[in-house]
Amino acid sequence: MDTPFDSTADTLRHSLRVAELMGEPIKELIDRSTQHDLSKTREPELSTYDQCVPRLHEATYGTAEYAAVVAAMGEGLRHHYAHNRHHPEHFPDGINGMTLVDLVEMLADWKAAAERGGDGDLARALQINRERFGITAQLMDILTNTAHRYRWLNADEGR
């Protein structure tokens, strides 16, 4: 009589391999969490941010006033985009050039920026950025689902 196959060992090997593979982006996320935006603390970015951040705090994201401040940031902002892959502007093809890790950092950055701006409305920022960066419906759903998962949307308060 044949002994039935026990898949436990095979499943455990597979589970360990998935854990090993998941460790790579997890390590990258941890590294990025401690390095996020540090280029803003050195030239050529520091003086630009020293001059413009107070004006950005006073402007509402997505308005002409906000866009004018961003345009005035010039070389400091171009340097920031060139050295920080969590910005769609880093890539010639925008969001399409990004990885999942880039997207997670980008979404966290958008949430923190929304909080810094006063209203904390990530949902509003997502709608503006959907148009600004040509975010597809599917990716928009994923970003919104992620924001809901971590209660990053104002609508999630009290849930």
Rank of each mutant, 00 (worst) to 15 (best):
T8K: 13
R78S: 11
V101S: 14
K27E: 12
R149D: 10
T8W: 10
F5V: 12
E45M: 12
I142W: 11
E28G: 06
R151W: 00
Q127F: 00
L38Y: 12
M106T: 08
A147H: 04
L100P: 10
I26V: 12
T136G: 09
D2W: 02
R130N: 13
C52G: 06
H148W: 00
A82H: 11
G158Y: 00
N84I: 06
A123F: 01
S33V: 08
G94T: 01
L38R: 11
G118S: 08
R132E: 11
E45S: 15
S39W: 12
P44Q: 05
N145F: 10
M22C: 07
G62V: 10
G117C: 04
F5A: 12
T99I: 13
R42K: 08
T99S: 15
D119H: 04
E105P: 03
Y61G: 02
L16I: 03
L56P: 05
D109V: 05
E58S: 06
R149L: 12
L12P: 06
G62M: 08
A82E: 13
R130E: 13
K111W: 04
N84D: 12
L77F: 06
F133R: 14
P88L: 07
T63D: 04
R78M: 09
T8L: 09
A125P: 00
Y49Q: 02
I95E: 08
I26L: 15
D121W: 01
L16V: 05
Y81W: 15
G117R: 02
H57I: 00
T3W: 09
H80Q: 10
V53E: 02
G76D: 05
G62R: 03
L77H: 01
G76F: 01
G76A: 07
V101G: 09
I135C: 09
L107D: 03
L126V: 13
T11L: 07
L29Y: 12
D102E: 10
H87P: 00
T48K: 00
V70W: 06
A9L: 12
M98E: 09
F133L: 15
E24I: 05
E115W: 00
L122F: 01
H87L: 02
L126S: 05
